[in-house]
Nucleic acid binder design. Structure first.
Lengths: 147, 147
DNA sequence: CTGCAACTTGAAGTGAACTTCAACTCAAGG
DNA sequence: CCTTGAGTTGAAGTTCACTTCAAGTTGCAG
């Protein structure tokens, strides 16, 4: 089994065929085609999909994921080193996000519980990078606790 | 200044007036009205909004936030104790989410970098509780590292 | 060769969380 | 009193990340 059909990819990755087609339209994924125009994926694409899923977990939009994936070589199958570089970048993102949530955790009870609370003292703000999550409205991040 | 207008609330909370009206339609917020039908908020509502923002940060949908807020007393201004109870619940959510992301972090480089990778070994799965984030598609969570 | 599950496409639909718009009313300073 | 910035409504629009649909095509097992 050299290549995988879209159905097989869906089964192995847990991502619906419709989503895989959507990712392709959005430029996150590319599949070779058979003579009859059916998609054929390589096993390496599973790694790509895993990356997409993980990045989404971290709260990154498909737009940003596309940009990140663009850093992978197009002419050859990405090597272990290529992926390491990319993942260490996201690892950074992840660390930041974790740190943010830890600060949130450490302040939550105190802030919400007491009269002080809130947007003033807890300094929930909207930074330029919206790591937080997709969604239209303003996204916020908890500032380092400094009060 | 006893009560706050919608504009003042927006300024103080960082949430747009349109969003505050939306929250009211969705039953997350309630404002008194002037004779002329304009909204007047109490300072306590800032706490409510802070809670909404924080819960969103954690990846909870407005639906679930509404349900949580329903546990607050309706007849009186929530006390410190009321808020503490609620926030400790979310603190739990937050802890879980942090733990999930830490597992993700610990496995990311190894999983993505090496040939093994992926959806098999890294066991990214879709649990019954979609803490993760809003969004339509299947949401996943990283299982406790057990390989 | 046939049958049928699995694939193809473009277009339209979905749900969450808002925003924008048009037309109108209110409230507060001068 | 009058002006003007802020507020009101319902309806429609937007973005993201997909899914669903209809109508047609492909590929493999028997």
């Amino acid at each position: 089994m050299e290549t995988l059909t879209i159905g097989e990819m869906a089964a192995r990755s847990g991502v619906a065929p419709s989503a895989l087609r959507y990712y392709e339209r959005e430029g996150l994924l590319h599949a070779a085609r058979t003579g009859g125009n059916q998609r054929r994926y390589e096993r390496a694409d599973l790694r790509r999909i895993a990356f997409i899923k993980i990045a989404q977990q971290v709260g990154v939009s498909l737009d940003e994921i596309r940009e990140a994936l663009a850093e992978l070589p197009e002419n050859r199958t990405p090597t272990k080193a290529d992926w390491s570089r990319l993942s260490s970048h996201w690892r950074h993102r992840l660390e930041e996000r974790i740190a943010m949530m830890e600060r949130l955790r450490d302040q939550l009870t105190g802030c919400i519980g007491c009269g002080c609370l809130s947007l003033q003292r807890c300094t929930l703000i909207n930074p330029r990078d919206r790591l937080a999550s997709r969604g239209t409205g303003p996204q916020m991040i908890l500032n380092p606790p400094r009060d």
